[in-house]
Design a protein around this nucleic acid. Structure first.
Length: 842
RNA sequence: GGACCGUUAGUCUAGUUGGCUAGGACGUCGCCUUCACACGGCGAAGAUCACCGGUUCAAAUCCGGUACGGUCCACCA
């Protein structure tokens, strides 16, 4: 009823489609710019992409759309990603699911803050924090507008009524609520542990935010005097600046050079301190000198050693990477200045034996590329290490497309050394809803009904500290990691915490992710939802690879292989670009952006448009029939059977997210089977009913009409605009759906598949092809008549089959006398892989 | 160092339970301006499916190994 009403409205509103004649003539050229734009706004008006929250009958299908980080214009990677899951959304919608395809924006974080700092040449502390936040929000809005435009131009079938921003108060509420629940469940704790620290951004960062880059370093060989003797130990270190924080020397107990020194005291150069030589089998005897200084903290290995051997900690640097130890002569210097000073001092003292260059990998902040240090400071953590087993279990229980990508998540979960540090010393983020009692230090976590709340601005809504009765509180200054926002999307998309029925949409049906964010987004989603709800967040994972430049290297502006997505879309149209995205390579593999692929997509659209236009002309006088009313000929049955098999193949491919094979199959069939053979073969039947009979003509029209409809449907998820436009011209009146996008996905019908018919049709096509070859070789134009063709089939059965296609063969090739003989005669042209021979005479 | 992925014509790529005469695209060459489409049609050339070994009646496909490339992770103080 509802659909019918829309259909009527649409017809009233659109002069183009109103008329008494069934089939409207289609324009000669396909003008993708205006047609794509037209449908993008019409679909929006028709609300066909809205999720129906009240529908209790259709099964829901929910897509965990990634809320992208607004970083500027849409890029080709986004195009690939959004094409993938838009195909899934459209396919599932046509299959009858109530599809939830939401869209949010992941706003917070260092990326935006750093851009604001750089653009205005300021640091976060230089201006009031609310002013800084406002600048961040303005920049985010600008970027959202740019990306949204790109996503719209791509033709994504998003339900925009679901749009959200993680910086909105309501989303803050969700994030803070999830924090509170996790605290209550024992998953959130405060602690003083060494964490990765970015001195430039002055914040803790998680392992996942540390990039490793190859750099050339210098290995310094330094003499560490042995206390009470004239001897010394030679230590090799790439970080001499950490000597003031040296707390031990470790050697391998199996190392004959040093085992005698274990337990001895060593004088730390340039300080008056003595440290002990300790034994640790992890020391590589072949690297450097085999004696290692342990400093707090030069690297992660130092952290491990300190914990293992219960060594003391010297806090050498402060939050911005300056030497903090006031006892130390280098106090106030930055680390790199300290290094220069220390190397000079060591040289002067005669303690620097030599230096050599080494290749090393250094951890850098993934946002600003500053070298990461390790710092101990009070932080909030989520207990994630304990969940690694259950993460693995759940990852194994669901399908991944492609399957092998699950290893990336499992390997990452198993490899983690530390819990997830979720506090950040930044501004543009969701506040941690916590206060501290100034009297006794008691932690006051917000009650669920208080959020959203910013403890920097507002106090806790209690009269007194429940522990000591104190009335003074200080609000938590730290904020949350951005991943705390985006790692609850599955629940938020489903309607948590407000909709009582949110579990209807949870877990999400499919979680799309890129190879680059499996260890962050997919992982954090897993641990957070498992900890919050004891349930996995999604029931399948779709992984996209990275988009490379045309040269196969990583796409980047500096390599001059960068392609701008808005430009690509404007120049080629969404349907062409979407074909590239879908067919550029197997799902999950990295695919280069090749303009030839886009252009091929464009040419295919043109072919499809022309074929449809031609068909609509041939169907001008056709009234849609039911199958029972037509007497199908061999080639009609042949292509119908093949189309049915194609339907099965394409449906299977879409189910398994194998977009590339689906697209290849549809295009090849449309172009080379439907257009090149079938359309050519039926022309004469359609043009000359007086020769072939009215029944034959009607059968051809019926087949043409239904097969083309099927092809349009199969292609609709990939190229929604062109298929919609053709549908509106040719099928709106008879098929009754307001849009091909809400038409019912065809179900494979084995009853109309016939291997026998396909084999027979293939034989006719093969004979046809062979006579064509003959003409080509004799350099006769294809439409020139041939006088005599004699076919020797070798047996009666084959002769009968070819006789069935005789009319198609003679009319297609303009044969005047066509004779089929059952005799065995092996001269002339052999039809490949048959015993059929052909003799022609012009 | 570990894990994963890949290696198919000049280039890019398909080939998911082994049956291929290895499919498609771009490019190249030849013919055809044939009444949907020259953004087209017909045709041709071009691949020992990286290498070595194994399983099998049968291997691009399965197993083991080697080489090269890519990605991720862990590292070397």
């Amino acid at each position: 009823m509802f659909l019918g009403a829309i259909s009527v409205l649409l017809k009233l509103n659109s002069n183009l489609h109103v008329g008494l004649i069934l089939m409207q003539p289609m324009p000669k050229d396909y003008k993708f710019v205006e047609i794509e734009q037209k449908w993008q706004s019409k679909w929006e008006e028709m609300k066909i992409y809205h999720y129906n929250w009240n529908d209790q009958t259709r099964e829901p299908f929910s897509i965990d759309t990634p809320p992208p980080y607004p970083s500027g214009e849409l890029h080709m990677g986004n195009v690939l990603n959004w094409t993938y899951f838009d195909i899934v959304a459209r396919f599932k919608r046509m299959q009858g699911y109530n599809v939830l395809f939401p869209q949010g924006w992941d706003c917070h974080g260092l990326g935006i803050e750093i851009q604001v700092e750089k653009a205005n040449n300021i640091r976060k502390r230089d201006i009031p924090s609310d002013q800084f936040r406002n600048m961040c929000m303005a920049l985010v809005e600008k970027y959202i507008a740019m990306m949204k435009e790109g996503i719209l131009k791509l033709g994504s079938s998003i339900d925009w009524t679901t749009e959200y921003r993680t910086m909105d108060p309501n989303y803050w509420r969700c994030t803070q609520l999830s924090f509170i629940q996790l605290y209550q469940n024992g998953y959130m704790y405060q602690g003083t542990h060494p964490v990765n620290w970015c001195p430039r951004d002055e914040t803790a960062i998680a392992d996942a935010e540390v990039d490793h880059v190859k750099k050339e370093g210098t290995l310094h060989y330094i003499k560490f005097p042995i206390a009470g003797s004239n001897e010394h130990l030679l230590i090799a270190t790439s970080r001499p600046e950490f000597i003031p924080a040296c707390v031990a020397i470790k050697v391998n107990p199996k190392d004959d050079r040093y085992s005698k020194y274990i337990g001895r005291k060593i004088v730390v150069p340039l300080t008056n301190r003595e440290v002990t030589v300790i034994a640790d089998e992890a020391v590589d005897m072949n690297f450097g000198t085999g004696a290692v200084q342990i400093c707090t903290y030069g690297d992660k290995d130092d952290v491990k050693t300190v914990i293992k051997h219960k060594l003391p900690v010297i806090r050498l640097i402060n939050e911005n990477g300056k030497i903090t130890d006031t006892e130390c002569k280098y106090a106030g210097l930055y680390l790199n200045q300290t290094r220069t000073a220390i190397v000079a001092d060591l040289t002067e003292a005669g303690l620097l034996e030599k230096t050599e260059k080494i290749q090393q990998e250094v951890g850098v902040c993934d946002r600003c590329k500053t070298n990461v240090e390790i710092l101990e400071r009070k932080q909030w953590f989520m207990k994630t290490m304990d969940l690694s087993e259950v993460v693995e279990k759940n990852a194994n229980e669901i399908p991944w497309y492609p399957d092998y990508m699950k290893n990336r998540l499992i390997d990452w979960a198993k490899s983690l050394d530390w819990d997830w540090v979720i506090s950040r010393q930044r501004l543009f983020a969701t506040p941690i809803p916590v206060w501290y009692c100034k009297g006794c230090g008691e932690i006051i976590v917000a009650k669920p009904e208080w959020v959203p709340i910013d403890p920097k601005i507002e106090g806790p809504r209690i009269d007194a500290c429940p522990k000591c009765g104190g009335k003074d509180f200080s609000g938590e200054q730290d904020v949350m990691d951005t991943w705390m926002d985006s790692s609850i999307t599955c629940a938020v998309h489903a309607g948590w915490p407000d909709r009582p029925d949110w579990k209807r949409l949870f877990p999400a049906s499919i979680h799309p992710s890129g190879t680059d964010i499996i260890r962050t987004w997919a992982y954090y989603l897993m641990v957070r939802h498992l900890a919050l709800f004891n349930e996995r967040p999604f029931n399948s994972v779709l992984i996209n690879g990275m988009v490379l430049g045309a040269d196969g290297r990583k796409m980047s502006k500096s390599l001059k292989n960068y392609a701008a997505a808005p430009e690509a879309l404007a120049k080629n149209g969404a349907d062409a670009v979407r074909q590239w995205a879908a067919s550029g390579g197997a799902t999950g593999s990295d695919i280069p952006y090749r303009i030839q692929d886009v252009e091929y997509g464009k040419r295919f659209l043109n072919k499809l448009w022309n074929a449809s236009g031609f068909a609509s002309k041939l169907l001008e006088d056709y009234t849609p029939q039911s199958a029972a009313n037509v007497e199908l000929q061999l080639l009609d049955k042949w292509i119908i059977s093949k189309t049915e098999n194609l339907t099965k193949k394409v449906t299977d491919s879409f189910e398994k997210c194998q977009f590339n094979t689906a697209v290849e199959d549809i295009r090849n069939f449309t172009w080379h089977v439907f257009c090149d053979y079938y359309l050519e073969a039926i022309k004469d039947r359609l043009y000359r009913p007086e020769v072939h009979g009215k029944e034959s003509r009607l059968a051809a029209q019926y087949t043409l009409y239904e097969v083309l409809y099927r092809l349009l449907q199969l292609f609709a998820p990939v190229a929604p605009h062109v298929t919609e436009e053709i549908y509106q011209y040719m099928y709106l009146d008879s098929k009754s759906y307001t849009s091909i996008q809400v038409s019912e996905w065809p179900k494979f019908n084995p009853d109309i598949v016939s291997k026998e018919v396909e084999d027979q049709g293939d034989l006719i096509i093969a004979v046809l092809g062979e006579i064509r070859n003959d003409k080509a070789q004799k350099k006769i134009p294809l439409n020139a008549p041939i006088k005599n063709v004699t076919v020797y089939t070798g047996n009666v059965e084959i002769a009968k089959i070819i006789q069935k296609g005789a009319a198609d063969i003679t009319s297609t090739l303009k044969i005047e006398n066509f004779t089929v003989l059952p005799d065995k005669f092996t001269q002339g042209r052999q039809v490949p892989s048959t015993e059929v021979y052909i003799q022609t005479e012009c």
